[in-house]
Design a protein around this nucleic acid. Structure first.
Lengths: 177, 177
DNA sequence: ACGGACATGTAACACGTTACATGATTAA
DNA sequence: TTAATCATGTAACGTGTTACATGTCCGT
């Protein structure tokens, strides 16, 4: 699902500007959703050209016009159509995990620090998700956020319980160099 | 971490051909790692041009030469250097999850079938990971595979326990259309 | 007879990121 | 005064996918 379809989907919930859409991509769902201005604005322009959304520009003093986008009936159909396609495989790109795959090549201290930071990061993320769940959006959104929390929680526990596996290996390897 | 660095990393473990590397990308780690021939072969050629790997071609009857790549000391240093960089943020791209975010727009039957398939898929993946863990590679690899298993396991349980949240919402929504 | 494994590679294309351009307002 | 928020947009660039090109051998 590309940025274009994702934007269209968000507009099924709420009319929004490109700027507001970007904020959604930075919110608690950012693990799953992501897009930059450089992809959002062209996406919205294209959606408008295809008449899947309408755009009403509100003039603002000393600022670029604020362009509020609203989905059209045609846009809703197009989004539905995209939603009904069989979803492709997940791809979990994690540089942290890729690094862990070669943990034995790292200096032990560096590795431990990496894991410490990762654990802190997971906790931060968990806190944010819990906060987001408390203010509660739609059930669907809560469902996805809840899954995110579950995954982060499980990953955190796993990390704490199993870090010794890679850490001891890194120690052994560093003793042999 | 791009395909080039990833290939370099795998070559720290074992000399390999592009074809063999591709098989690794299709194995139990495919959730975290992924690359197509169209990116692997150019990556290897570039690595060879930079002298981070060497390439020895073995002539084969009636087939393209088999090109075995080996990492050089310079390549090991370059890889280490890449590994030591602060890892970027995770990005979990899941079309399934993106679809769930709009579950209330889907026909209830379609949604339930989607979730059923997803659960089956998770189980398949879990079985494969368990199989891979049994034959055991390096501790680092087991660590990462174990994390994969943990995540899939947690996701599976969450799905089973919470599917009713989105399913009932979809039912409600479909009754109102 | 047909598909899949083996084996490498190129070219067109899609998609997204990054950095840049512009500029006011407000809080620390 | 420095950074962040608001607000949109373009252009260059990087990276990867898909489809194509080529051909054998083996199992069913």
């Amino acid at each position: 699902m590309d940025v274009r379809v994702l934007c269209l989907g968000m507009l099924t919930r709420q009319e929004a500007t490109g700027y507001e859409l970007k904020k959604v991509f930075e919110g608690p769902l950012r693990l799953f959703l992501d897009a930059s201005f450089g992809s959002i604005y062209p996406a919205l322009n294209r959606l408008a050209a295809e008449e899947l959304v309408t755009c009403s520009a509100q003039a603002q003093a000393k600022r670029p016009d604020k362009k509020v986008y609203r989905i059209t009936p045609k846009g809703r159909l197009a989004f539905l159509d995209a939603l009904m396609r069989k979803p492709g495989a997940d791809r979990f790109r994690s540089e942290f995990l890729a690094t862990m795959l070669f943990a034995d090549l790292l200096p032990p201290r560096h590795l431990s620090q990496l894991i410490d930071e990762r654990i802190a990061e997971c906790r931060r993320e968990l806190g944010e998700l819990d906060g987001a769940l408390a203010v509660a959006a739609s059930p669907a959104e809560r469902f996805v956020q809840g899954l995110g929390r579950t995954i982060y929680g499980a990953a955190l526990e796993y990390l704490a319980d199993n870090r010794h596996v890679v850490e001891s290996e890194a120690l052994l390897a560093s003793g042999q160099n």
